[in-house]
Nucleic acid binder design. Structure first.
Length: 493
RNA sequence: GACAAGGUGGCUGAAUGGUUAAGGCAGCAGAUUGCAAAUCUGUUUUAUAUGAGUUCGAAUCUCAUUCUUGUCUCCA
């Protein structure tokens, strides 16, 4: 029997503001759409956190036996630079600055994006569609919305009529905004806007002569509005209605609100059953921003080549750090936090690697099945990874107790313990089991082993001056010796 | 300015009315060691922004104050 028939998941739905029991539209199948990156610069670390949350959710749903189609788009058409009609495509702007083709920019940063995610051990989504590959679908969608009377054409551009829409539907249903408040609070921007009302948003924009990225349409040579691609692609690959739509908190309004409106206007139904929003990543307590210098990109974080952190942190540590916080909470990236995560991560991995060496007994002094269900309970409660990790550390304690002979376990329970630890740590949290010494070259190992042997001999002869010199100078070179009853091993910092 | 989310110990981060507020890190003690480090075990402090209120009972609900973050314009 599939696991999902035994484990009931509750998901916090932004639409209702409550945790709801998760029931897919089609039993056993899950359609999930997540708004992907705009590939006009290196991927933002906060962006990475959002995708990591949904990677974890994807992994857990798959683990439960659901057949999941996970769609995460690549926005390569760029978006309007500002609200005025002189809007310039972000990608076009960058391309002109660097004097290369827009698609060259797209290619470069798509590759960067994929590299970063792969380094962090992400699973690829089922489909990764691009906006530029779905211009025809977007044009068709616009035409439907016009035909249904929710959009109007002005000077070759098409705008969504929010006021008209609000007469028959509720604009603001997701973000809990009232249209009246929006009207009241919208700043009136200078410039000759073609919009009937400031709340209206573009479905199609006529391209200015300087705009390189452009496509023919019934209305003008131009480009699609930025909310449209997600509606077009989610509909194409997941249907007019699907289970989960995710993204960052900052996309709730207006982006996701507009997606709902577009879908309602085109198909007269709500597109998504469960709206999920991941919270923001801060750096030292405040917003990450390139302009203020409070910014770090993934590569700098890995390498340690930055002015913010004291050292580099491995992708596994970054992943563990992020999974220690709930996806709906703000997470503060700090040096202290990462150092703490690094130690905790190593302790967890060390314990998991110890399981193979444990000896089974005729009875168990711990209830492994009950503990295992606690791990599922944590994940079932809106993917509460911090509680899951707390439970995994309970497992760490069991492992060490068994090793010290302070607890016993049967061979069946031992197998269950190992399976549960590795499944949750590696398959679901997506942590990687990288043994400390594994990636050292044989030559280096040979040299260090020789020094370890010499030190042992010195200690046997009580020549502590020599033995301590070997230990200390190796430490200075970044190689730490770890003594234990079983012998001496080394790790490289 | 308007709207939204939040403020939990030295750091981090769970827990939405009910006995001792999870876990990680740091600190302290012990095991181990020639001594350390590493590792393991145990463990501490008036920790729920501030002030009032509702309740038998509040981190959790209400109001006020204050601070942080987000959105309102492209943004994960």
């Amino acid at each position: 029997m599939e696991l999902y028939k035994q484990q009931d998941i509750k998901i916090y739905n932004t639409l209702s503001g409550e945790k709801e029991l998760f029931k897919p539209l089609i039993d056993g199948y899950v359609g999930m759409y997540v708004c992907g990156p705009t590939v006009y610069s290196n991927v933002h670390l906060g962006n990475v956190r959002t995708f990591m949350s949904f990677d974890m959710i994807f992994r857990y749903l798959k683990h439960l036996g659901y057949k999941v189609r996970y769609v995460r788009n690549i926005t390569d058409a760029g978006h309007l630079e500002d609200d005025a009609d002189v809007g310039e495509d972000k990608i076009t702007k960058k391309a002109r600055l660097e004097s290369i083709e827009p698609m060259e920019i797209v290619q470069r940063y798509t590759v960067d994006f994929h590299n970063v995610l792969q380094t962090l051990n992400f699973l690829p989504p089922s489909i990764e569609p691009t906006a530029t590959g779905h211009i025809i679908e977007q044009i068709e969608l616009i035409q439907t919305i016009i035909d249904n009377g929710f959009a109007y054409v002005v000077n070759g551009s098409v705008y969504f009529d929010v006021l008209k829409y609000n007469e028959s539907h509720e604009y603001g249903i997701l973000s809990k905004r009232k249209l009246d408040d929006l009207i009241h609070n919208t700043r009136t921007l200078d410039g000759q806007s073609d919009k009937k009302n400031p709340q209206d948003f573009a479905l199609w924009k006529k391209a200015e002569p300087s705009h390189i990225m452009r496509w023919p349409s019934p209305w003008s040579n131009g480009f699609p509005g930025w909310h449209l691609e997600c509606t077009a692609m989610s509909t194409k690959y997941l249907g007019e209605q699907f289970d989960i739509h995710g993204g960052g908190m900052d996309l709730k309004f207006p982006h996701h609100e507009c997606e709902i409106a577009q879908n309602q206007a085109a198909k007269n139904q709500a597109p998504v059953k469960y709206w999920m929003h991941a919270n923001m990543l801060e750096l030292n307590g405040s917003r990450m921003s390139k302009s203020t210098g409070n910014y770090i990109n993934p590569a700098e974080l890995f390498s340690g080549e930055n002015d913010i952190m004291s050292k580099g942190f491995s992708p596994g540590v970054i992943r563990f750090f992020m999974m220690q916080a709930a996806y709906r909470s703000v997470l503060d990236l700090t040096n202290d936090g990462l150092l703490a995560a690094e130690k905790g991560f190593n302790r967890l991995i060390d314990a998991i690697n110890l399981i193979d060496h444990l000896k089974a007994s005729s009875s168990s002094s711990i209830d492994v099945s009950a503990w295992r269900q606690k791990c599922y309970d944590a994940m079932n409660d809106d993917f509460n990874t911090p509680i899951l990790i707390a439970n995994l550390f309970e497992g760490v304690k069991y492992i060490n107790q068994i090793k010290d002979g302070k607890a016993t376990i049967t061979s069946e329970d031992l197998e269950l313990l190992q399976k549960t630890m590795t499944t949750f740590a590696f398959d679901i949290l997506g942590l990687e089991n990288i043994s400390k010494t594994e990636n050292n070259s044989d030559k280096l190992s040979g040299a260090v082993e020789l020094l370890i042997k010499m030190r042992q001999e010195a200690r046997a002869n009580r020549d502590f001056a020599l033995s301590d010199r070997i230990r200390d100078e190796l430490a200075q070179a970044g190689i730490q010796l770890n003594d234990s009853r079983e012998g001496t091993t080394f790790s490289i910092n």
